[in-house]
């Protein structure tokens, strides 16, 4: 065999390799990559992950522990991702990409003390309110819905307002702000829910 032939032979072998082996290998790689991707998605979708940053653990997590979504009569718990990360795949990816901005602010130390957190809290809360308003409180509705509520079993204040909310097209976050955390300083947002100043 001449050198030329040898090269040709090798090329043939290579062609065979690329055709079959690469296909199989590609699929294998794809599975591993894809699995790894989803695995990462799952890993970053746990409460454990969220509170691995002290910014999340020291503020919102501590407050959430005193609320109904942490501990209740039936023992069903709603965790951070349940309320903050969409379940549906496409929305989830988009939210995850947006949330990578939190890494930047982690590095910048934007909210790395309680004081800084409280100062920025209104802005963060407003982002969340806007998001929920836009999606008709989609994450709340993953667990709750007006359709499956037994209104007769609810307190009368809940009953009265829910019936009306359905007609008026209001959404959960319109009335249930601060359901899982303390609210930010509301002086700027609504002067009727804070202490009055002299009217002079």
């Amino acid at each position: 065999m001449s050198l030329k032939d040898k090269i040709k032979c090798f090329q043939g072998w290579l062609a065979g390799f690329t055709a079959t082996t690469l296909l199989v290998g590609g699929i294998a790689f794809g599975i591993i990559f894809w699995g790894g991707f989803n695995w990462t998605m799952e890993l970053t979708n746990t409460e454990q992950f969220c509170i691995s940053c002290h910014e999340m653990e020291d503020n919102v997590y501590v407050e959430y522990q005193n609320t109904i979504h942490y501990e209740n009569r039936t023992g069903v718990r709603a965790t951070c991702p349940d309320c903050h990360v969409p379940k549906e795949w496409g929305h989830k990816i988009v939210r995850k990409i947006r949330a990578s901005n939190e890494l930047l602010h982690k590095a910048l130390g934007s909210i790395n003390t309680r004081e800084k957190f409280e100062n920025k809290r209104l802005k963060l809360a407003q982002n969340e309110w806007r998001r929920m308003k836009k999606t008709d409180s989609r994450e709340c509705r993953n667990c709750h819905s007006f359709d499956s509520m037994d209104y007769t079993a609810q307190g009368r204040r809940a009953f009265n307002r829910h019936i009306k909310a359905v007609d008026d097209g209001q959404t959960c976050i319109d009335c249930h702000k601060g359901i899982a955390h303390e609210l930010p300083d509301m002086h700027e947002v609504d002067a009727s829910v804070v202490v009055g100043q002299t009217s002079k």
Partner: peptide, 21 residues
């Protein structure tokens, strides 16, 4: 009525979110 989980602090008064004028 129940007042479970209703917070009153310097930043916000839950009662006033229904009882204010």
């Amino acid at each position: 009525h129940k007042t479970q989980g209703y917070k009153i602090n310097l930043k916000f008064n839950k009662c006033m979110s229904c009882h204010s004028w």
